[in-house]
Each structure stands twice: as structure tokens, then as C-alpha cells.
Computed example of a mutant assay.
Amino acid sequence: MKRNIEAVLKVLTAVEEDTHVEGMSGYNLSLFCVEECSTDDLESAMTLLVDSGYLVGKNEGSFRLSWAGHSLLEELRGQ
């Protein structure tokens, strides 16, 4: 499967915008992204981001951005 940068950007943006200290649940993340990308693209993006250390999986299926994840998001936005 090819990497979908739009799905990666959607995931990073959704997690950044979440206000819960414990991070965004995988379920809420899938609801946020479902209109913009396919389930396969979403799952692939999340796997790549976790494997690369940009997204940190927390207890009970929640996710938060790592420092590197914030930096990647800024880079993808062109900041």
C-alpha cells in the first residue's frame, strides 16, 4: 500500500486538535478522518506514524503526538 500524505496530515491534525490530556481515542480519530480518507488509508497512516515515533499509542487505544509528531505536522504544513 502506498503512503497517503493527505491521510497522514489528517491524522496528525485531528490528534493535535483534540483537547483530551490522555490523547484522542482511535474511535474518535476514525470518525474525524472517515470523510476525508478511506479506512485502509487511515489505518496505514496510523501504523506508519506509530512505527516512526510521530504518534504515541496510550492506554485503551488513545493516541497523542510526540515532539517529533508536532515537528512533522509543522513541516507538512510548511511552517
Rank of each mutant, 00 (worst) to 15 (best):
M1K: 12
M1S: 13
M1P: 08
K2W: 03
N4L: 04
N4A: 08
I5H: 05
E6L: 07
E6A: 10
E6K: 05
A7K: 08
A7V: 05
A7N: 07
V8Q: 10
V8R: 10
V8D: 11
L9I: 03
L9A: 02
L9K: 08
K10T: 08
V11I: 13
V11F: 04
V11Q: 01
V11G: 07
L12I: 06
L12S: 02
T13Y: 00
A14V: 09
A14W: 08
V15T: 01
E16K: 14
E16F: 03
E17K: 14
T19L: 14
H20K: 15
V21F: 15
V21K: 13
V21C: 08
E22N: 15
G23K: 02
G23W: 00
M24Q: 05
M24I: 01
S25D: 00
S25H: 00
S25G: 10
G26R: 02
G26T: 05
Y27A: 12
Y27H: 13
S30V: 04
S30C: 10
S30R: 03
L31R: 11
L31A: 03
L31Q: 13
F32K: 06
C33Y: 01
C33N: 01
V34P: 03
V34F: 13
E35I: 13
E35P: 06
E36D: 15
E36A: 15
E36T: 08
C37S: 13
S38I: 05
T39W: 03
T39A: 12
T39E: 12
D40Q: 14
D40P: 06
D40F: 14
D41Q: 15
L42W: 07
E43P: 02
E43N: 11
S44C: 09
S44F: 13
S44D: 14
A45H: 07
M46H: 03
M46K: 12
T47L: 09
T47Q: 09
L48F: 07
L48R: 06
L49S: 03
L49F: 01
L49T: 00
V50R: 06
D51Q: 06
D51H: 11
S52Q: 12
S52D: 10
G53I: 01
G53C: 03
Y54V: 07
Y54N: 12
V56W: 00
G57F: 00
G57K: 09
K58H: 02
K58C: 07
K58G: 05
E60W: 05
E60C: 14
G61W: 03
S62V: 08
S62N: 12
S62Q: 11
F63A: 02
F63C: 00
R64S: 10
L65K: 02
L65I: 04
S66H: 00
S66R: 00
S66Q: 00
S66W: 03
W67P: 01
W67N: 12
A68W: 01
A68D: 13
A68I: 09
G69H: 02
G69S: 01
G69F: 04
H70M: 09
S71P: 02
S71C: 08
L72D: 02
L72S: 00
E75W: 01
L76C: 06
R77P: 04
R77M: 11
G78M: 06
Q79C: 11
Q79G: 13
Q79W: 09
Q79I: 14
